[in-house]
Amino acid sequence: MEWMAWTLPTALFFIVIGLILAGMTVWQTVSPGHQRKGFLPISTTRGDRLFISLLIAGYAHLLLLGLTGWPLWVATLASVTAAIVIMKWG
């Protein structure tokens, strides 16, 4: 792994994403989901909402850091909150 300068935050990010994907796989295997309509303009499954929430959280995090000058922890908390809202009610 010498080819890439892994830092602890980078490693933790990818470990958490991997754990989320593994957890969703197990959840889907044990309890198959179904499509539902939330506040998003399309019918979505759990996997769809996970993908959308990861994209929105990533872009929101970058925009908040770049445009507002908020501290890292505030932008992270806002991004995670947005992802949770999309997963729950999206």
Rank of each mutant, 00 (worst) to 15 (best):
G33Y: 02
W27I: 03
L62K: 07
G38F: 04
L62Q: 12
V30T: 01
L8F: 15
F39I: 13
S79C: 05
M4E: 06
M87E: 11
G66P: 04
L40T: 09
F14H: 14
L21T: 12
A22N: 03
A57E: 09
P71L: 13
T7W: 08
M1Y: 10
P71V: 12
L54A: 10
L72N: 05
T29N: 10
S79Q: 09
L40C: 13
L21Y: 14
T44F: 03
E2Q: 09
G47K: 08
V30Y: 04
S53H: 04
T76M: 08
I52P: 02
L62W: 15
W3S: 15
G69E: 13
L63I: 12
I86C: 01
W3L: 11
A22F: 14
S79G: 14
L65Q: 15
H34P: 00
V80S: 04
L54P: 03
Q35M: 15
R46F: 08
W89K: 14
Q35D: 12
T81S: 08
L63G: 04
V85K: 11
T10I: 14
G90C: 12
L67W: 09
Q35N: 01
F51L: 11
W6E: 12
M1F: 13
K37P: 00
L50N: 03
L64E: 10
L40S: 11
A82G: 14
W3E: 07
I84A: 01
L21E: 12
W3P: 06
L63V: 10
L54W: 00
I15D: 11
A11S: 11
I84C: 00
K88L: 15
S79N: 06
T44H: 07
A22D: 04
A11G: 12
G66R: 13
V74W: 02
L12T: 09
T44W: 02
A82T: 15
I15G: 04
L8S: 08
V80I: 13
W89N: 00
V80E: 01
R46Q: 08
R49P: 02
K88H: 01
T68H: 03
P9D: 09
M24E: 09
L67R: 10
G47W: 00
R49M: 04
S43Q: 11
A57S: 14
W6M: 13
V80Y: 00
F14V: 00
L77S: 07
A82E: 10
A11C: 05
W73G: 05
R49K: 05
H61V: 00
I86M: 06
L50Q: 05
A22C: 09
S79H: 02
V74H: 02
S31I: 12
T25K: 05
A82F: 07
R46M: 07
P41L: 07
I20N: 08
M87C: 13
L65E: 14
T76R: 08
V80M: 08
S31N: 04
R49E: 11
G33C: 09
L50D: 00
M24F: 09
A11M: 11
G66H: 08
I20A: 14
G58M: 06
A5H: 10
R46W: 07
V26M: 02
P32R: 07
L50A: 15
A11K: 10
A78N: 02
P9I: 05
G47Q: 07
G18D: 02
L63E: 15
P32C: 06
L67P: 03
A83C: 09
D48H: 10
A60T: 13
I52N: 03
S31K: 03
G47T: 12
K37D: 12
